[in-house]
């Protein structure tokens, strides 16, 4: 199955969510201008890219068979349930945000913390945006996202996901030796297609 690449622009920042990731509290007083500055910095440096493919899936017990590869996971099997098809995707907000975090990690830990939080929010929002786009594009209803590391699906599954999507070539996301992704604000997930509308 072919991997496709889709880019997204101008996804609004959910500031409340970003602040929640940063350890709570309201952006008030001295923090507010700094927070807003970080939001602008993050917005200017994100490049949203998603690569994805549609795979067939058949679930037998805890074996999820996707045709080109299969995984054992009780929880993923449960999540995919009666789906016949699944979307496998990798999404990233790009490497520039990691540079910003690295930069402010050295000179302003407050900004580094806020950028970390905003980055996580950006990645989540991108996934939401992608999924609702897919729902419209394919006229389908999707199940909740499921990633390696959730429940009993080990991070090891990332290796198969990366091989299948060729993330490095398609969107510049790489996997390091401890199975973490670079750029760090990246997500891979399975999303079951619940029904075709």
């Amino acid at each position: 199955m072919t991997v496709k690449v889709k880019t997204f622009e101008n996804i609004a920042v959910n500031k409340r969510e970003a602040l929640r990731y940063a350890g709570g509290g309201d952006a008030c007083g001295e923090i507010l201008p700094i927070f807003n500055e970080c939001v602008s910095l993050a917005e200017a440096s994100t490049k949203n890219r998603v690569c994805y493919k549609i795979l067939p899936v058949s679930v037998k017990g805890s074996l999820c068979d996707f045709g080109e590869f299969s995984l054992f996971s009780k929880d993923l099997a449960k999540n995919l349930g009666s789906c016949n098809r699944v979307i496998l995707f990798a999404a990233t907000v790009g490497v520039e945000l990691d540079r910003l975090i690295l930069r402010f990690g050295k000179i302003s830990p407050t900004k580094a913390l806020l950028l970390q939080a905003i980055g996580s929010e950006r990645a989540e929002s991108l996934c939401d945006e992608f999924c609702s786009w897919i729902e419209q594009e394919l006229k389908v209803k999707l199940k909740p996202r499921f990633s390696a590391g959730y429940g009993d699906l080990p991070l090891e599954a990332q290796k198969q996901i990366f091989a299948s999507l060729d993330c490095a070539k398609n969107i510049g996301v790489t996997l390091n030796d401890s199975l973490l992704m670079s750029p760090s604000k990246s997500v891979t997930a399975f999303v079951g297609i619940e029904e075709f509308l």
């Binding site: 940063a22 350890g23 709570g24 509290g25 952006a27 001295e30 923090i31 913390l113």
Partner: peptide
């Protein structure tokens, strides 16, 4: 009463 971003900012 003080949250992490404020704590950090003071520390800075």
């Amino acid at each position: 009463t003080v949250f992490l971003p404020q704590l950090l900012l003071s520390a800075e």
